[in-house]
């Protein structure tokens, strides 16, 4: 397994080293814990999301069993596991997208910065403006590229004047690495872009409202290898500003982009920990079997 991520390597080499991020500042050390069998240093202030005893039911069928997981801020966490293992379900709990499925029921606590997202006082609409999401299939709205990115700022009243909107659209598209390709055709339909460009457009749309967390549900599974490489590069860049959670079927991708990995199997969280450790020295035999390709 080749690991191209310098951070992951740094973590393997021992201690949590402060790493230089692209803004030139010094990023907080990222420290990982394995829950529940945690060992090592637990430093909760670095965790953006904490989940405890999460159970999810679709009608009578239970999809998730007692999931407990801590997701670090300003880093990439990957969920891996065979199809139907519940990783997407767990992802959708974080921004309460499961609310849109009438038969879905979520129990347990999921906290972002210490506040339970399932609390009665939390409006899912507000929550989702803080937790952006990118889907498996690129889903730009049948509007212009500009309107796609301006969608969030408009509905949340972040920007109303045209020049404010233009500034947000430009900076979001730049962050998503799409600006150079679309700058001269902002007012053409977003559906006319290629698959990889559409996916970056959707990422630009998500970051236009400056969320704290970005959830990505298999963002590259519908893309070719070149487009995939671009998205992975983008994820690595966005890591300095956002807490990113990515569901992926590709273990190579998990190894390339993530700092922490969680392995799901049959609705249970089997194991989680620093990515490099997971891939080199998994504790659970099921993880071992999965990452060596023996099943799934």
């Amino acid at each position: 397994m080749t690991v191209t991520n310098p951070n992951a390597l740094a973590l393997v080499q021992g201690h949590a080293m402060p790493t230089q991020n692209r803004d030139g500042g010094v990023a907080a050390p990222v420290i990982h814990t394995a829950v529940p069998q945690g060992h090592g240093v637990v430093e909760t202030r670095d965790f953006k999301i904490r989940a405890r005893d999460v159970n999810v039911f679709y009608g009578d069928k239970q999809a998730l069993f007692d999931v407990a997981l801590d997701i670090p801020a300003k880093s990439v966490t990957a969920f891996i596991g065979p199809s139907g293992c519940g990783k997407s379900t767990f992802l959708r709990c974080i921004n309460r997208m499961n609310d849109t499925i009438p038969s879905a029921r979520v129990q347990g606590a999921i906290e972002i910065d210490g506040a339970d997202v399932n609390a009665k006082s939390v409006d899912p609409v507000v929550l989702r403006s803080r937790v952006g999401m990118v889907f498996q299939k690129p889903n730009p709205f049948p509007k212009t590229i500009f309107e796609n990115v301006a969608y969030g700022p408009k509905i949340h009243g972040i920007a109303t004047r045209k020049d404010e909107l233009e500034a947000i659209v430009e900076s979001s598209l730049k962050k998503a690495g799409l600006w150079n390709e679309v700058a001269d055709r902002l007012h053409q339909p977003g559906t006319g872009l290629s698959g990889g460009q559409q996916q970056r457009l959707v990422i630009a749309r998500a970051i236009a409202v400056s969320p704290e967390v970005i959830l990505m549900d298999e963002p590259c599974s519908a893309l070719d290898p070149i487009a995939t490489a671009k998205i992975e590069e983008l994820i690595d860049e966005l890591r300095s500003q956002f807490c990113i959670v990515i569901v992926t079927h590709s273990m190579a991708q998990a190894a390339r982009v993530s700092q922490k990995t969680a392995f799901f199997h049959l609705g249970k969280l089997v194991e989680s920990g620093p990515t490099e450790e997971m891939f080199t020295n998994p504790r659970d035999s099921r993880t071992q079997d999965y990452i060596t390709g023996r099943f799934g």
Partner: peptide
């Protein structure tokens, strides 16, 4: 997917 996209934007 368009509905999901919109709801996910809040």
């Amino acid at each position: 997917s368009l509905r999901d996209g919109s709801y996910a934007m809040g």
